[in-house]
Amino acid sequence: MNPIQRIPLEGLFNTRDLGGIETMDGYRVRPRRLIRSGQLYHMTENDKKVLSDEYGLKSIVDFRTLDEQAEKPDPHIEGATHISNPILQTMTAGITHDEASEKMTLEEATLAMKENGVDPSFYMQKLYEDIITSDYSLKQYAQFFRILAGQEEGATLWHCSAGKDRVGMGTAMLLYTLDVDMDTIIDDYMMTAAFLKDEVELILKRLSAAITDPGQIESLRICMGVKKNYIKRVFQIMEETSGSIRQFLKDRIGLSESLADTLKALYLE
């Protein structure tokens, strides 16, 4: 049974150590080395201490846009280096739980969906398709893997805003490269829904004061969530584009056999 558990932090709800996840050939991801997360803005001083002292955090890879980073910068954590690595050049509605952008992006997007008869699940899947076919985004994911390959000790934490879409896709590609089975990859991706459930409901409760249309609220809920078909579609596009997932990762993201072997040597035991 592959353990998928969040790190019990005070101000962060979707931060988890990938340690312990099993590969198909009997190895396990080393604990306290690979951490996925949502934004760090609300972390407490105790959270900083946990990540620094207990997890040996050395690098923070920020997948958010430059505007997102400027609006809610990562707190300083002793001993950790912040690395800006935006997966998108500009903010896109549907991929964030950031309160400052909810009304500006998600509400406008869901209203436009309703007016144009667009299903919000289809809209979200299209966002994933756009990311995995974007030369810019693929270049940024390639940089992420090079960062991981150079991290010989301590933990690397990567995050976006909610920790569900940009981080979800990057983590899925990483686990696939480490030879984790597809069911476990999807289970890890879907755990975001459980970890963020209370936060999403709190946000929707606040927004419901200004949005009285139940249909729009439901669309917002969908845009703040994850579905299996989103990440499955990403892998399907890889196969359609390059003949196999492995070949796509090699051709489009630079995950050569040599780089994959380096990642396995660093992060598996």
Rank of each mutant, 00 (worst) to 15 (best):
E115Y: 01
H97L: 10
G79S: 01
M104D: 15
L57I: 03
S219I: 00
M191A: 14
S84D: 09
P120I: 04
E129L: 04
R246V: 07
K114F: 03
L106D: 14
T110K: 01
M24D: 10
E218H: 06
D74F: 01
A172N: 02
T15K: 02
A155N: 08
L51S: 11
N14I: 05
I83G: 01
S52G: 07
K264E: 13
N2R: 02
T96I: 03
A112D: 12
E78P: 00
M43W: 04
D198Q: 10
A109S: 13
E199G: 00
S161K: 01
Q89V: 08
G26F: 08
Y123D: 15
E218C: 02
K139R: 03
G225T: 05
I4M: 06
K103R: 08
T90Q: 10
R36L: 07
A149K: 00
T133N: 00
I237Y: 00
Q247C: 07
I35E: 13
L178W: 09
R206P: 04
I87M: 13
T171E: 14
L259Q: 11
K232R: 03
E201Q: 10
K205F: 05
M173S: 02
T105F: 14
V50G: 13
H97N: 09
L174V: 07
F13S: 12
E201F: 06
I60V: 15
A149S: 15
A149T: 05
A155V: 03
P31H: 11
G79K: 00
R146M: 12
D130P: 00
V118H: 01
I185F: 03
P75E: 12
K197H: 11
V29I: 15
E54F: 02
D47T: 08
E99F: 02
N85C: 15
S256T: 14
Q39N: 09
T15E: 13
I217N: 04
T81L: 03
R64L: 08
K228W: 03
S256M: 03
R252M: 01
S84N: 09
R233L: 05
K197C: 10
P120R: 01
E129A: 11
I95R: 00
T184F: 07
Q151F: 02
E10D: 14
E257G: 13
M43D: 11
K197I: 04
Q69P: 02
Y123E: 11
Y55K: 05
K139S: 15
M182R: 04
T212C: 05
T262D: 14
S258R: 01
L178A: 12
S244I: 06
G215R: 00
I185C: 05
S244A: 13
D198T: 09
L111D: 15
T110N: 03
K264D: 10
K250C: 10
L174P: 11
T177Q: 08
A149Q: 03
R246W: 08
V180N: 11
T65S: 15
T90C: 09
M113T: 02
A265L: 07
A193C: 11
D62Y: 06
R221T: 07
Y230M: 06
Q143I: 11
I21C: 12
I203M: 06
L249F: 10
Y136N: 05
I237D: 00
S219G: 12
I77G: 08
P120T: 04
I211Q: 06
T44M: 08
G215Y: 05
H159A: 04
D74Q: 04
K164P: 01
S134A: 09
I95N: 12
K72V: 13
